[in-house]
Design a protein around this nucleic acid. Structure first.
Lengths: 215, 215
DNA sequence: ATGTGTGAAGTGCTTCACAGCG
DNA sequence: CGCTGTGAAGCACTTCACACAT
């Protein structure tokens, strides 16, 4: 059942991830002054096959011109709309240790229209601090109230393994439906909550594995 | 063609990633004093199906006992061997900014037998510094020599987007065959070099997308 | 009885091949 | 002619179902 223009059936995870890449490449091309781009050009810039790119875009209707390609500005705008990054997304960081503070300082968030509105920790030495970037570190006990006040939508978990599940429970109870977890551990989420994991230990393990393969 | 016990045909990427998770769970179970574990138990602890777990392990021969399960110690040792994390892997960090220093301070590396032997940057204020953890920050110009001296095997790229491809070229020229890239950009690698990407911008984009879906 | 290992079936993403439009 | 959009085929990973080992 094709809707007004935003959603068309269930979109495979790999497709969503590639859309993000397309969007990023188009941002660069816009700056370069490109007017149109073919799937073959996009293929060269992303490493994904031209067929795959056309197929991915076809999930959301057809906006290419046969014989010409895609209008860069229009396609970019459309992708940002689909990904929901045309509006500012408000993010909270849970855990203000090594990684948490690095994330707060990461300029890439702003560039992609994500705004860190607050951070949380439980260590007395960290709570109450305001970072260089102007992000206030609150106690996790205040998370529910602040998430509501700040209208945050996404939580990033940068806490130790042992604190990850409790932290997730807190952000879910606060009503957040999208969570990015950096703790290398399996977490249980209630249905309706989207959890994505960035697992450094898995990444390193995989690289280590391949070292032993082709040698 | 089953070899002496390490490799059996091409192993799918998803399998390798799950092996890492199994290994981590088994480490915990060892500490808890568990002797044997069934695929059903592992399933509960990892969220992967019992069938999938058995199938994954079957890639490397059979080491379960019908009616009993797997010997925790033996399976753990076997997985660490397969992943190549039974021996210490030496790692260099390229880029000692926000993220790079957070990675240097990340204790999880040591726990999984990865040792950060050096870091690299080009900013005069950073080069020459030795971090709290005892990691020396060198100039990228010295990367080739130090990688050889330190017998490093894995590079982690924590540099800005614009510096990522040059940085990759440098580490490849230095002979490194496994690279973990944090810069949100597509990189070109010569064949034989394993590149894995941790792309925060893709992760956030995907979460943002799902926010717009189920609401 | 209980739990592994695996052929066979199923599922879902990717690639091919080409009709059709500009 | 060039490039999109897509049915059909291909491929790869996952799940089913069950023989077999203890």
């Amino acid at each position: 059942m094709t809707q007004s223009g935003d959603e068309c059936g269930r979109v495979p995870d790999p497709v969503v991830e590639r859309l993000s890449v397309y969007s990023r490449v188009l941002t660069v091309m816009l700056r370069e002054g490109a007017i149109t781009i073919s799937s073959a050009d996009l293929s060269e810039r992303t490493g994904f096959s031209a067929t795959q790119i056309r197929r991915d875009l076809a999930f959301f209707g057809q906006f290419g011109t046969p014989g010409v390609g895609y209008d860069v500005w229009r396609l970019h705008a459309r992708l940002e709309r689909i990904l929901g990054v045309d509006i500012e997304r408000r993010v909270v960081i849970v855990g203000a240790g090594n990684l948490g503070t690095a994330l707060i300082g990461y300029t890439g968030f702003r560039e992609h229209n994500f705004r860190i509105v607050a951070a949380f920790d439980i260590a007395p030495g960290r709570v109450g601090v305001t970072t260089q970037q102007g992000v206030r570190i609150h106690h996790v006990a205040d998370l529910g109230r602040i998430v509501a006040d700040e209208k945050a939508e996404i939580a990033v978990l940068a806490v130790p393994v042992a604190a990850a599940q409790p932290a997730l429970d807190v952000v879910v109870k606060a009503g957040l439906r999208a969570v990015l977890n950096f703790a290398p551990t399996q977490l249980a989420v209630p249905p309706g909550v989207r959890l994505r994991n960035v697992d450094l230990s898995v990444e390193m393990g995989a690289l280590s594995f391949y070292l032993g393969q082709d040698s």
